[in-house]
Design a protein around this nucleic acid. Structure first.
Length: 262
DNA sequence: GCCGAATGCCCAA
DNA sequence: TGGGCCTTCGGCG
């Protein structure tokens, strides 16, 4: 379930297990073996989340960069679950074992690696240094439709296909509206809603974007309802058939009744 | 067993 | 813009 909230939650959860301890790093599956050797046994000094990227910083100045992609998963041992699959990276401390399977990226590099990755990212609404003004400037100066711009990690880091659809729904914005044509107060509100949604995602460790205050009082909620439009057949608020439009190469769900066409 | 889809993204044309 | 890659899982034979 990797959007930006996932990395921040992982940073939070893994910190007490790994940070301040010597970490044995290995690659049972093998593909990460050469890189693992570069940091094996070193003390970890910090875990950093930036958008959908994770950095495990070691005392030597080297860091492991991880991007989960669509399928990557971490697992902490001790819960007796079935095997995770091919374990690309294993980190072991005196407190336990952390396994990583299926990442898009898992590599060790110097501080410059981290900096070059971060340089490609826009502000992260979950970080203290995530500047709203930077996001608004980027949205205001792109020719992209807002539904495309929101998936662009150079504009805002950490937004994925669920949050883009849901935030546009909340503000009644049709995904094909040009970002630059939205008024600044609207873009400001979009940023603030994303921040709220992402924070809730960190708290809940899953994406639940629905807000009862935005629904008719008599609208029944079913068990499992977690979004207004994302991957739904009908709009949670009004029942109109949900449509999709391909933006940034991926289907963007929207309600044609609640989100007025441009 | 095979196929397609899935909260992502890179790269070649 | 399309294909490839990372992996799992459910639906369909």
């Amino acid at each position: 379930m990797p959007e930006g909230h996932t990395t921040h939650r992982l940073a939070r959860d893994l910190t007490p297990l790994l940070v301040g301890r010597a970490v044995a790093v290995s690659s049972p599956q093998g593909r990460f073996a050469a890189d693992a050797a570069l940091v094996d046994g070193q003390p970890m000094v910090a875990i950093e989340a930036y958008g959908k990227h994770l950095f495990f910083h070691f005392a030597s100045g080297l860091s492991t960069h991880v991007h989960l992609g669509l399928f990557g998963k971490f697992r902490v041992d001790g819960d007796g679950l079935p095997p995770l699959g091919e374990v690309r990276m294993r980190m072991r401390t005196d407190l336990g074992v952390v396994d990583l399977a299926g990442p898009t990226a898992c590599e060790v590099g110097p501080g410059e690696l981290r900096d070059s990755i971060v340089a490609r990212l826009g502000p992260d609404p979950l970080r203290r240094d995530g500047r709203r003004a930077d996001a608004i400037a980027a949205l205001g100066s792109t020719r992209q439709p807002i539904g495309g711009a929101l998936l662009d990690q150079r504009v805002i880091a950490g937004v994925g296909n669920v949050f883009r659809a849901e935030v546009l729904f909340v503000h009644g914005i049709h995904p094909t509206v040009r970002a630059a044509d939205c008024d600044e107060p609207v873009l400001t509100a979009v940023w603030e809603t994303l921040r709220k949604m992402l924070r809730a995602g960190v708290r809940d460790n899953r994406i639940i974007t629905i807000d009862r205050r935005l629904l008719p009082r008599d609208r029944p909620l079913r068990r499992g309802d977690s979004t207004f439009v994302y991957k739904r057949d009908v709009c949670l608020r009004c029942g109109t058939a949900v449509q999709t439009v391909k933006l940034a190469g991926r289907p963007c769900y929207f309600c044609p009744a609640c989100q007025a066409a441009p």
